[in-house]
């Protein structure tokens, strides 16, 4: 009984959209009406789309790795501060309250080749200008900037939860700072790392605003292609089929990651 509101919520926001995606992906409309068909799915496997899919995964992967490399030391520093680094953490979260589009536009105006703030300054200093708008570099930069807080927060939370006496026990048993990081801190913060990776990788791999703006439409990622099917060519069936494939690949990669995490928690591989 208590579960009803939740159930309704699930049906409205998850089950219905899923059914619609399946419906559009597996049906075609022609003169004879609507019928079941695999046409959209077959079309999705065209190399053009597979390349876009591959690029999406590659850029999202790079962005996730960079986020992890930046976020982990940052979270460590924040947790070590006596007040839990709350003031610094606040500064980090602040941009998240700004609209996503605005933030990305801000980067565009910073990096623009001709009138961008950065290049104006570089030119004034007689330094070579930076021409990265419209390249994968700009896209990855946009992803890292936009999604970094989603990596910092879960890692920070996981680190803050580790009992101080456990850290002291590692010291007590002869581990120096580096060994303690390797054998205690990192393993105990893995749940945070895992959710950080998920929370960065998911929006990065499906992103279409960032490649649109910072890639100035020159780099087509899977998110852009899906967006175009719905908003430009009105081929909802094909868009649904691509979404479905993307979703399945994401689910598989998440499952693989979960498994490798559990293997690590077994501890056997730690030494």
């Amino acid at each position: 009984m208590v579960g009803y509101p939740y159930l309704i919520w699930m049906v409205v926001f998850i089950v219905v959209p899923l059914i619609m995606i399946f419906y559009y992906a597996f049906t075609v409309k022609d003169a004879n009406g609507t019928r079941f068909a695999l046409d959209h799915l077959m079309k999705s496997f065209d190399s053009k789309y597979m390349v876009a899919l591959g690029k999406s995964f590659l850029y999202a992967f790079i962005a996730t790795v960079i986020c992890l490399i930046l976020a982990y030391p940052l979270a460590l520093i924040l947790v070590k501060r006596s007040n839990g680094g709350s003031a610094m953490l606040f500064i980090f979260i602040l941009p998240m309250w700004m609209n996503f589009l605005l933030r990305t536009y801000a980067w565009l105006s910073l990096l623009e080749t001709n009138n961008g703030l950065l290049n104006t300054v570089l030119r004034a200093l007689h330094l070579p200008v930076l021409d990265i708008i419209g390249t994968p570099k700009a896209i990855v930069l946009g992803m890292v900037y936009n999604f970094l807080p989603f990596m910092v927060l879960p890692i920070y939370n996981a680190l803050a939860k580790i009992d101080k006496s456990i850290m002291e026990a590692a010291y007590d048993l002869g581990a120096n700072d580096f060994k303690r990081l390797l054998k205690v801190t990192i393993p105990l913060s893995m749940p945070g790392v895992m959710s950080g990776i998920t929370m960065v990788f998911m929006p990065a791999v499906t992103s279409f605003v960032i490649p649109n703006l910072l890639g100035s439409g020159k780099v087509n990622l899977i998110g852009n292609i899906i967006e175009q099917q719905f908003l430009l060519t009105y081929d909802w069936g094909f868009g649904a089929a691509l979404s479905l494939i993307l979703m399945i690949i994401i689910l598989i990669s998440m499952a693989v990651m979960q498994r490798s995490d559990e293997d690590m928690e077994g501890g056997a591989g730690l030494w």
């Binding site: 456990i166 002291e168 007590d172 581990a175």
Partner: peptide
């Protein structure tokens, strides 16, 4: 970590990600 002294902490402070064997072997592994 450079003192030849070991502590039994008030709240035990065992490593939750390691099993009993790995907990006890921690110092020797180091």
């Amino acid at each position: 970590y450079k003192r030849n002294v070991n502590t039994v902490f008030q709240k035990y402070a065992l490593f939750p990600h390691l099993n009993v064997y790995e907990n006890i072997a921690f110092g020797l592994n180091i």
